[in-house]
Amino acid sequence: MALSSEQLKAALPEQLKAPLEQLGNAPWYLKDLPTYLKAFGILTVIYIGLRLYQGEFAVSAGLDSYEPAFEQYWMRLFYIELVVIALFTTGLWGYLWVSRDRNLDSISPKEEICRYFTLTMWISVYTFAVYWAGSYFAEQDNSWHQVAIRDTPFTANHIIEFYFNFPLYVILGGSAWVYARTRLPLYAKGISLPLTLAVFGPFMILVSVGFNEWGHTFWFREEFFAAPIHWGFVIGVWFALGVGGILLQGVTRLIELLDDLEDAP
């Protein structure tokens, strides 16, 4: 039998109850904080779940792509990922577009401040996905390549890194871009160059997968990680530095909006 939310609350330790109640009473400018924290939680569960899956099935079923077990445990995961990514992209971008603000000229300073906070949360969730794709699973790829000789572009780590992690951060970065474009006046009037660079540059990392795998059709070596064939990824990630410009745009506008706001205790 499923527990009710009241029963769940009662079962929580005392130390967790107070912060959770405070979250429910978040100030107006942090109204999306609970959703933001949930997004972090869900992503953490997904990424750690995928890593545990690798720990369980990479050696037992992921060494030889010609084995039937590889098809069962890894290619099936790959197809599931494609479906999830396609549905998630359509749903999320569709929702952001359909629920766009059609009257951006009349939003109050308080509402605009709130939306700048939400945009920052979107970018923060994007950078969290960049962490898993660019840091953990990226370097883990080297570790796996040094224990298993590649006989396919769909290795036990690539299936998660290239075909799930990369599209996922692209989707989340794109969502931040669409959110800004559809809900914040300055971003609707002009296209923010730093936001565009910070989203489209790392998107090119996904495209570089093709270049990278094409290169590996020539070289059997497993593998020199700092090789030039990988530098397409490197150039793509430099564009994440555009976040500095986004921060400056946000701070500039927030100062103006705070100046327009009445002082409150």
Binding site: T120, I123, S124, T127, F128, V130, Y131, W132, A133, G134, S135, A138, E139, N142, P202, I205, F224, F225, A226, H230, W231, F233, V234, V237, W238, A240, L241, V243
Partner: peptide, 21 residues
């Protein structure tokens, strides 16, 4: 929070694929 994950993710990828081995 944003900066922490940004710099871990972005700088680490740059570093792993240039200094790497």
């Amino acid at each position: 929070v944003l900066a922490l994950f940004l710099f871990i993710g972005a700088f680490h990828l740059h570093f792993a694929l240039t200094v790497g081995d």
